[in-house]
Nucleic acid binder design. Structure first.
Length: 470
RNA sequence: GGUGGAGUGGCCGAGAGGCGAGGCUCGGGACUGCAAAUCCCGCUACACGGGUUCAAAUCCCGUCUCCACCUCCA
């Protein structure tokens, strides 16, 4: 049996912790408070990163379309994201490589990140706190954990979280403390200062590091990666997170540790629901530098595709499944997008008709979004609109207009029209004269020339017209 | 080794016991001086082996293959 979700039932999302679909609500009755793990700004975000960032946007738009208020915070990690060996801090490694000040690198990539989001029509979060500017609140958080005797100072002066003191450690990721130890893939090297293998650093002593360090009561040092999100989420969202969003890989250790750090301070579950987006593969492989298949949004644009064709591709797949992206699928999405936009330009000429049937169609789409973001169903329904005889053009136009805040595919926009260069204008006039004289050889020759300029010609009984080749 | 997910036509992908989604590509046609664009038509698939059932892509058992996660990662 086909399950048609009920509209206006509110957003429901699969929660990683409870492993079931939960309604997303504002715990204070006012505003849905959402925290999204943001980028570490030491390199360009690839399209896989963008898929996760888009996930937040889908959640936000669905909630707002359903009539709820949303507050969304996304952190910018510009310090403290490192592996066990702090020589390998991502920011500092890149800084060394580029021989540049780490902060200037961070700001550059942060700006690019915002540009990418805008290209994908992702609404900006209400707040983008930078880790480097939130050291005080992290230190406060660490101090409280120390008071609660959940953290201790190691021989190396670093402060560690005592994972054995948090009873439900591992519940989010399905890991058990004892099962973590063997580490089949990695030979675990016992770090001397930790009391237990699963403990992690809240604050790292500077050692011989000179940049991006802060003077504190514990001595000079810098924050661990996980404390950043605990401190910032609770600070900027006033002590509770209704929905926490991030990539699936963050489930462990990042979110597991974050939960252990946050819960004791609020004396309960600091986060109502954990939403994790699955990874994107490109042409069958995980996107990574070593596989050489890292694709950036700028690559998509360079190939002549509308950046929103990427959004379109993402919508065609459920956030919870691994998705295989390819140039082929982007190209397919691109042409469908263009076709829909062209159709709208036609439909909108008819008198607008937002009847009950049209509004039912919009609500049916909303219901699919609300049902754990079932965007593949949304796209199926959207495509069906094209062939649907039961709707008039005026209804179809009204439907697309109403859906735009949800879909954000810019379906109402006309094709971007670039200014025609003079050279092309002259050629077009020449071709028109040639056609009037039935000199088809010349006319075809000019058409080829125009094609080289990226201009496609369309001859119709009413004369020639042109458009930019897509 | 542990855990989770997946195998559907040339490609991407819905569907979750009966009625073969849809898109892209490709082929044919209409239109056109020819193209392009557009429209119409076509291409009939569910990894393999068993089983359950009147009926299986869909349920059960087994096998194979692929992918991801397991303290770098969105």
């Amino acid at each position: 049996m086909k399950r048609e979700p009920k509209p206006n039932n509110g957003l429901h999302i699969y929660d990683t912790l409870e492993r079931k679909v939960l309604p997303i609500t504002a715990s204070d009755g006012q505003v849905v408070r959402i925290y999204c793990c943001g980028p570490t700004v030491y390199r360009d975000a690839h399209v896989g990163n963008l898929r996760t960032f888009l996930l937040s946007d889908l959640v936000r738009r669905t909630l707002e379309f359903s009539g709820l208020k949303v507050k969304m915070v996304q952190n910018i990690t510009d310090v403290g994201h490192m592996s066990e060996d702090f020589e390998e801090d991502k920011m500092l490694a890149q800084s060394k490589l580029e021989k540049r000040d780490p902060y200037s690198i961070a700001r550059e990539y942060e700006e690019k990140f915002h540009k990418d989001l805008a290209e994908l029509n992702i609404l900006p979060a209400h707040n983008y706190p930078r880790a480097s500017e939130c050291i005080e609140m992290m230190l406060e958080h660490i101090a409280k954990l120390t008071e609660l005797e959940l953290a201790y100072q190691g021989d190396d002066s670093s402060i560690y979280f005592d994972s054995t003191k948090f009873d439900s450690y591992g519940q989010l990721s399905g890991n058990r403390l004892d099962a973590l130890k063997p580490g089949h893939r990695y030979e675990y090297v016992e770090a001397g200062a930790k009391r237990f293998h699963a403990d992690w650093a809240l604050w790292k002593a500077a050692g011989n590091r000179r940049e991006m360090i802060w003077q504190t009561a514990y001595g000079p040092g810098f924050p661990g990666w996980h404390i950043e999100c605990s401190a910032m989420s609770l600070h900027y969202l006033q002590g509770h997170v209704d929905l926490h969003i991030g990539g699936i890989d963050l489930r462990f250790p990042h979110h597991e540790n974050e939960r252990a750090q946050s819960n004791p301070l609020v004396k309960g579950e600091a986060v109502s629901a954990w939403l994790h987006g699955e990874h994107l593969l490109f042409e069958g492989r995980k996107m990574s530098k070593s596989s050489g298949n890292v694709v950036l949004l700028s690559d998509v644009i360079t190939r002549g595709f509308d950046p929103l064709s990427l959004r379109f591709c993402f919508l065609e797949n459920r956030y919870r499944s691994q998705m295989d992206l390819s140039w082929n699928s982007i190209s397919a999405a691109h042409s469908t997008l263009q076709r829909l936009r062209a159709k709208y330009q036609q439909w909108k000429l008819a008198p607008r008709d937002y009847s009950d049937e049209a509004s039912a169609f919009v609500l049916a789409i909303l219901a699919h979004f609300q049902a754990d973001l079932d965007t593949p169903q949304v796209m199926i329904k959207l495509r069906s609109l094209e062939k649907e005889d039961q709707f008039s053009d005026g209804q179809k136009a009204a439907i697309l207009e109403n859906l735009e805040p949800l879909l954000a595919l810019k379906l109402l926009e006309e094709m971007p029209i670039k200014e025609l260069p003079d050279e092309a204008r002259v050629l077009l006039e020449a071709r028109q004269r040639a056609r009037e004289n039935k000199d088809f050889a010349l006319s075809d020759q000019i058409r080829d020339q125009l094609l080289l300029l990226g201009i496609a010609i369309n001859d119709s009984p009413s004369g020639q017209s042109w458009s930019w080749k897509s």
